[in-house]
């Protein structure tokens, strides 16, 4: 990874952190940790398409770790990791089927995957399978949130295509 990539990854990580903090200030829609619009994911997606899978992985893992440190809770680390890692793996493995114009669709899939990950973590950690009851609403919110964040990342990438294509 060259220096430019490292620096840009760091900048994206910082933005992702800010996005995460802003989102945390908003009231939760559903009583499961980590289910939200996922604004931070815009940056992970951007990193994936503009810089590559290593950068995306770094952006995600570092953001999640720092967020847990800021929140002062170790429990949230486990929660964030499950959803985040699962959706990251999905994003990386399926990326080749989704060119930039279809980024939004990949984002939807990864958002739904993220929520399923959170749901599973919640069920395991609290030993209450009743939580699975929330599955349908998590799919709905995943589709909507994924589409919104995916579109954001996609539109920005399309605009900046001429910049990052040349440099990387």
């Amino acid at each position: 990874m060259n220096t430019k990539k490292v620096i840009l990854s760091a900048v994206l990580t910082a933005f992702a952190l800010v996005a995460f903090v802003i989102e945390s200030a908003m009231p939760p829609v559903v009583p499961i940790y980590g289910v939200k619009i996922g604004l931070a994911n815009v940056f992970t997606l951007f990193a994936l398409y503009a810089l590559g899978k290593r950068s995306a992985t770094a952006v995600l893992l570092i953001r999640v770790s720092l967020a847990a440190v800021f929140a002062g809770q170790a429990v949230s680390l486990f929660y964030s990791l499950t959803g985040g890692v699962l959706s990251l793996l999905l994003m990386i493995s399926l990326k080749r089927f989704f060119p930039v114009k279809r980024l939004w669709a990949l984002s939807v899939l990864s958002a739904v995957m993220h929520n399923i990950g959170q749901l599973t973590a919640a069920v395991i950690l609290t030993s209450t399978p009743q939580i699975l009851f929330y599955f349908p609403i998590l799919v709905v919110s995943g589709i909507i949130a994924g589409a919104v964040t995916g579109l954001c990342a996609q539109l920005v990438l399309l605009r900046l295509k001429h910049i990052y294509d040349k440099n990387f």
Binding site: A105, V140, I143
Partner: peptide, 25 residues
């Protein structure tokens, strides 16, 4: 798949889950 294809897939999934959720609650 073209964009329209994905839109149909997701919209259907969304409607099914939304209805399912409303029934449960």
């Amino acid at each position: 798949m073209k964009n329209r294809g994905w839109i149909i897939v997701f919209a259907s999934a969304l409607i099914i889950c939304a209805v399912w959720w409303l029934c449960i609650t």
